Every structure is written in C-alpha cells, then in structure tokens.
Computed example of a mutant assay.
Amino acid sequence: MTTVTNYERWPEDEGVRSSGEWHEPPELLLERMRSKIGSVLYGKEEVISKVLAAFLAGGHVLLEDVPGVGKTMLARAFAAVIGGQFKRIQLTADMQPADVTGGSVWDGRSGSFLFVPGPIMANVVLADELNRTPPRTQSALLEAMEERCVTTDGESRRLPEPFMLIATQNPWDYEGTFALPEAQTDRFMMRLSIGYPSVEHEVRLLAALADNRSVDPSGLKPVVAVEEWRRMQRECKTVHVHPDLLPFAVSIVSETRAAVELEAGASPRASRDWLRAAQATAYMEGRRFLLPDDLLATAEPVLAHRLTVLPAYAASGQTAATVLDRIIRSTPMPASVAGRRRR
C-alpha cells in the first residue's frame, strides 16, 4: 500500500465516503484479490494492479504481448476472484461476428427460432489474438464494449453485469495479423504488457510445476461476490476530484491533439477513461479523494495507445509514450494541488 505523507484533508473531501458498511474495508478485499491473482502469475504485481483498476473503473484491457506469458491465466484468475463467469474466444481469420455474439437457430420441437448466446455473454471474456481476425469480426465487439449489449436478428440483448473484456493482440509485425481499427483501440481503457518473467520468478514457476504445486486459476476461491464487485464499481465513481485537477488533465489531453509529433491525439473518451482509472487507483489504496499522482500513474496505460506518431518522428525513435511524457512534464500542475504528492 502507498503511504501519503504531508497530507491534510481538503475541505471538499468531507463526507465523501459512501453509505453502508463492508465486512472488511474494500481496499483490504482488493489487496487480497491482488494476492490471489499473484499466486498464479508470479512477479507481475504492477500489471495485476492496473488490470484491477481498469475493471474497477468499468473499462476493458488490451494486452499486447508475445504468446505464453500468462494472459489467459490472468483473465481466468480475475473471473475466479470475483465469482464471475469466464468465457474465452479464440479469434481466427475465418471467424464470423455471429461466432462472437451468438445467433438464432431453428428448434424443430418448438417450431421456432431460439437464440443461442455466444461466448460474449459472460462476466469476464478473453478475446484471444484479436488482431488475427478480420476487421468485420473485430467490429462485433464494439457495441458490446461500449453499450454493454449485442444486437442480433434486429434485437438488442443486454450483457451480464459486470462485463469486462480482456483482449490480447500479437505484436503488429507477426505474420497473419490485422491492424485494429482506431475506433476499437479507443474503447480499451488501458493497453498493458505482461512481459517475460524474471529469472527468479520463472524458476519459481518451474519449481511449482515440478513439485505439482501449481495453482489452477479457475480453482481460486472468490474473494467477493459479483454484487460486491458491482458495489465497488459504483463506490469508486464517488471518489472526490479536486476541481483544479480537471483543467490539468484536460490540458494534457488537449496538447496531444496539437503535438507536432502526433497524427492523432486522445479523444474525449480518453479523458473520461483517464479520470475513472485514476479514481479507481485511489479507491484501491483506501482513499476517497484523488491525488495528482493517481492521474500521473495511469496516464501512459490509458492514453498512449490512443496516440499515433507521425512516420517521420517514429523513424527518429519517438514513441507515443515518449511524446506523452514530454507533454506531461511541460504541463504545469496547479499550485493548489501540487503539494498533494506522494513522497
């Protein structure tokens, strides 16, 4: 847990705790969730924390990584600790939209069409190798991600609550991959990378396998019930935001739209997602007020994947992350909140 030093409560923060009592403080439950997921994904505490923050904020996560580093394990473990239903979609080049959303089939007994739900109808859905399927099938996920429903045969059907999507994509230069449409990339709250384990953690993984002590992620016991998780999602939206932090965040987002290195900047949806992710980060630490560092800690995973670097600047080594870092460093923080920093 992060310690905040030299802090005095802002007057606006009084009375922002939500009503109702928990049997345990939510931050302790969330810490236990992180610990349980960490028992199957060794040494990836930072990634686990960011995934939890994104889902707590009601967002979706795009994992861009090489195969075999634990992306499926992470999704299964998360579904288990909230007691939710997990479904996996292995996306391929010949997959059709109905293979994701479901569709109607003729039932000879009843003499009518019946709707057969697709794998998107679950609390936690893993869309594996999203960029191996054509854009038409990728677009089948757009409505589900934003509207929390799917439309088939002219009828809209609500998805389960909560609904969270983890999509994985292979590096862009892998054979047989399609680029993700910008509209879809923008609907992911965060883009993260798990990365290879350290030598120490890979030895620990092999030792657990050799001794038959490895943990099946789907066998993890729930830490919270689905309704408790939904309550956490509602409560984290009430985390207080100092009014002066909002212009600071908007200034950074606006600058991405004007930066000479960038072809495309961040959208208003990005601003919304950034604020929600920062609120969730504060909530996970047991605070009901936002610190500037909550915004700074979530800036890159929320904003960088929405930025497109012009080829001339990309050739010189510029990336979305480095451009964003320059913008943040050059944007002055309001004096009224600059002292509310972690030591």
Rank of each mutant, 00 (worst) to 15 (best):
T256E: 00
E263A: 12
R234A: 15
A270Y: 09
K237T: 04
P301W: 08
R306C: 06
D244T: 01
V226T: 15
L296R: 13
F289K: 08
E227A: 05
L275E: 00
A297D: 15
C236S: 09
Y313N: 03
E235F: 02
K221H: 13
A266V: 06
V223H: 06
L220C: 04
R257A: 02
E263P: 10
R276Q: 06
G286Y: 05
H240Q: 11
T298P: 00
L275S: 03
L246R: 14
A225S: 15
M232E: 11
Y313S: 07
D273V: 04
D293P: 12
H240L: 11
A312C: 06
G286V: 08
A297F: 05
H240T: 06
W229K: 11
Q233T: 05
E235P: 10
A264Q: 12
R272Y: 09
A249K: 02
R230D: 08
A270F: 11
S254E: 13
H305S: 11
A280P: 02
E263Q: 14
L303A: 12
A280S: 07
A249E: 00
A270K: 06
E228R: 09
E263L: 14
D273S: 13
I252S: 08
E228G: 03
R234K: 15
D244K: 04
A225G: 07
Q233N: 07
Y283C: 08
A280E: 04
E255M: 03
H305P: 12
V223S: 08
R272Q: 13
V241I: 15
A297E: 09
Y283H: 10
A312Q: 14
L246D: 11
V241T: 13
P311M: 11
S271I: 02
P292T: 01
A277K: 15
H242P: 01
L245E: 07
K237W: 04
K237R: 14
H242K: 06
Y313P: 00
R231M: 13
E235Y: 11
A266G: 05
M284R: 01
T256G: 02
E261T: 03
D294M: 06
P301S: 08
A266E: 01
Q279I: 01
T298W: 02
P243Q: 10
A299W: 01
V250W: 04
L296D: 08
Y283K: 09
R230F: 13
R272W: 07
L290N: 04
A312G: 11
Q233R: 14
P243K: 12
F248N: 03
E285P: 11
F289G: 10
V309E: 02
L262V: 06
A270T: 15
A277P: 15
L290W: 00
E261L: 05
L295Q: 00
A270N: 13
E285I: 10
A225H: 09
A266M: 07
L262M: 05
P222G: 09
Y283F: 15
V239P: 14
L246P: 07
V309M: 04
R231L: 13
E300G: 00
A299H: 03
